[in-house]
Design a protein around this nucleic acid. Sequence first.
DNA 1: GTGAAAGCGCTAACAC
DNA 2: GTGTTAGCGCTTTCAC
Lengths: 343, 343
Amino acid sequence: MKRKPNTETAAAAPARAVTKEDVARAAGVSHITVSRVINTPEKVSPETRARVESFIASMGYIPNMLAGGLASRRTRIVAAIVPTISHSIFAETVRGLSEKLSEQGYQLLLGQTNYSEMEETALVEAFIGRRVDGLVLTGVQHTARTRQRLKAAGIPVVETWDLTDTPIDMLVGFDNHAAGRAMGDYLIGKGYRRLAFIGGEDPRGIARFTGMRDAVLAHGAREPVHIKIPLGSFLRSGRDAIGSLLRDHPEVDAVFFSNDVIAAGAALECIRREIRVPEQIALAGFANLELAPEVTPALTTVQISGHQIGLNTAEMLLARFNGQHVAQPVCDLGYSIIEREST
Amino acid sequence: MKRKPNTETAAAAPARAVTKEDVARAAGVSHITVSRVINTPEKVSPETRARVESFIASMGYIPNMLAGGLASRRTRIVAAIVPTISHSIFAETVRGLSEKLSEQGYQLLLGQTNYSEMEETALVEAFIGRRVDGLVLTGVQHTARTRQRLKAAGIPVVETWDLTDTPIDMLVGFDNHAAGRAMGDYLIGKGYRRLAFIGGEDPRGIARFTGMRDAVLAHGAREPVHIKIPLGSFLRSGRDAIGSLLRDHPEVDAVFFSNDVIAAGAALECIRREIRVPEQIALAGFANLELAPEVTPALTTVQISGHQIGLNTAEMLLARFNGQHVAQPVCDLGYSIIEREST
DNA sequence: GTGAAAGCGCTAACAC
DNA sequence: GTGTTAGCGCTTTCAC
């Protein structure tokens, strides 16, 4: 076999990475042929392809996608921005996204806002700077600057976890207000009249509350008690909140929580205090997390799927990337009440 | 018609993004000056800087970090590979990583292996192809190919969640075997003699089990029962597993779980069956997750911090990026037994 | 089927 | 302080 002057030496040198040029030289072809072997192997003769492939393997060549992205204007990177990855609902969405995207060689860049719109804007700018092929946002409420940057960048965007009449581009979610209303209707239907809502004040939590309140008021029941807890709350907040509620509003007969984790915290507190659920007080959660059916009593909740949101989002993005027209840019995944023992 | 420069300001043109050149032309300077305004503003005269900055803002210029990364060989991207983002322990690590890294303008690329070493290898190659500045791995067990690729790439690597004498590069974790041993010692010390372990068969779960077994055998107690459950298990698996254990091994007086989630599942099952914990059977978890102190009875567990692992990992990486020498490439975060009601 | 030329948008030297 | 000259490693277009 003949090779041009010492081109090998690629062994374990952190000095310079192996390039297409190196492989091309070793294989005695031009670098464009190496490129074809990797991207469009069917356009290369079998013999050439085999030889090039063997050199790629032996030299440990890994294409520089940075250079590729710069030249092709496609990075094959999608960015996802969530309030926090610690909350299992968002973690599930991210899991679904990452799973689906990686099937097609796309990678996921992750950003956390801590529920701050400013942080979101900063992340959007950073991700646009990295020329991501698509961007996934949580919620539908964003700063004017975010919208403007996204518009200017002209990349596919998917908003998630909510619904709106004015999406930036695409949307995968469900109607939080309607879901809250459905829960309100359900609780009223079960005979509860003195309701309360415990949740954080993010836009979706607020929508769930107002939906529930609208339903309750429509039925002529009294205005629900609204207990606000910090954003990104967990079990502990649920325990504490139900504690204050029981103390300050002993007449309340049913509580709707903005998610299952805080509802579960409340359920655990009720067990500890030997308060009978739902006889003394009914509890209802949101999201149907893994925890919901497992606590005692099992939680009535609103079924939605964070994982499905991730999968659908990925599919819509991939369709766009593949040049397909997305006929339905808004995907309403809906919700349903799951009745269990806690109500 | 010839290709025309396109100097106009970016109103909402998806055609071509604003470049340094565009800004430079508008401001009447060379593009390198724009570059300086962004990267080393102190090297530009205040007047020039102000003028350039105003054009950057008005034109909505966002630097192309792809091009910058190609030229500078620094992408300011770190990749993290975890078994699954759905498990809160890993989510916490990722949260810590992302928080700390973003403070310095670094972004996080996320990959999930589903506990497969092959997937890990594929991800490592993909991330190296994207020329990430650093790579974070979960665990210390990797394919030969992973190690070799990482060696050749010569980038900073941090292995996490475990300890080893032969790290690839840096390490932030704790000794799973010793932690398991400590729990074994503790349970023996409390008078339990017929122990069991319930957990998944990932390397760290296995280490926790063998550690616990070693301790138990050293004390002359009998070989612990070992119940294996699927990787990535949640509450449900804990319930099911404790069910089979109670049926098949009614003599067992204490169970050590490979994490708090499955332990909590078991605790919930015990509540439901009205089995008294710890009188009839003692339960101990691992990781001191948020759930551990909240279930009834509160879980004895091994305290470690996934979030801290993320923070320390990010700090070591950043130190390396900033050219500092990391004196302690191995960071043992330790562990401690937290005694609660369940034992 | 294969190759040459021309960038992609930026930073790293080195000049002025 | 500011500009000039070279690339970074790849894909694209068009030629053969």
